[in-house]
Design a protein around this nucleic acid. Structure first.
Lengths: 88, 88
DNA sequence: CAAATATACCTAAGATTCTTTGGTATACAA
DNA sequence: TTGTATACCAAAGAATCTTAGGTATATTTG
């Protein structure tokens, strides 16, 4: 995907609950790229540029690990605050 | 509860997965107090001081709201991470 | 009994990350 | 022609966390 598309997809798929702004996203993408977790491919659409980002093998490992961390964190939070998500 | 107790309880109840350090906790407690969400009661245990924190009514409202926000965020994350891709 | 660990408070520098607010430019609809 | 959407980006300020200390008492252990 490309940057702007990510902001729109996050907004759409999260039903407007998560607003990932460009000011937060672009610096993050650049850092991930600098860390070797993403590669970019510049594509011209007419006269407008897009930068498509793709996960590197290291990026795939990293995201898998991060998601595991996230679920581990959720389990821990569950133990602390108790309860379960409502209306799911 | 008091500050140090919170760090220990979080560590214990989260099975060591969440480490809430004092450097993060104390400034946060002081801010919550300044914002009127907590009140403190100083108690001497022998020659050692403890500061017990209690939620104010505003604090109770705030924590309830925050937990709701948290679950709302989780649902949104579920849609994105475990989400439904358009294609593939 | 001396030294290490645990309890209990705290601050401050540095790093990281997010929000806000701008900028540039093309495409299209009102 | 003005506004909205697309598409990239940077920088200042704010918020938060990590790290690394400081002070002091209490208890455990070698």
């Amino acid at each position: 995907m490309y940057g702007y598309e990510i902001t729109q997809q996050v907004k759409e798929q999260s039903e407007g609950k998560i607003l990932l702004t460009e000011g937060a996203l672009y610096p993050a993408l650049h850092k991930l790229e600098a860390d070797g977790l993403l590669t970019t491919e510049r594509v011209m659409i007419g006269k407008r540029m897009r930068k498509y980002y793709t996960l590197t093998p290291a990026g795939n490992t990293a995201i898998t690990d991060k998601i595991k961390e996230f679920y581990s964190f959720l389990e821990a939070m569950q133990l602390i605050i108790g309860g379960k998500p409502k209306n799911t």
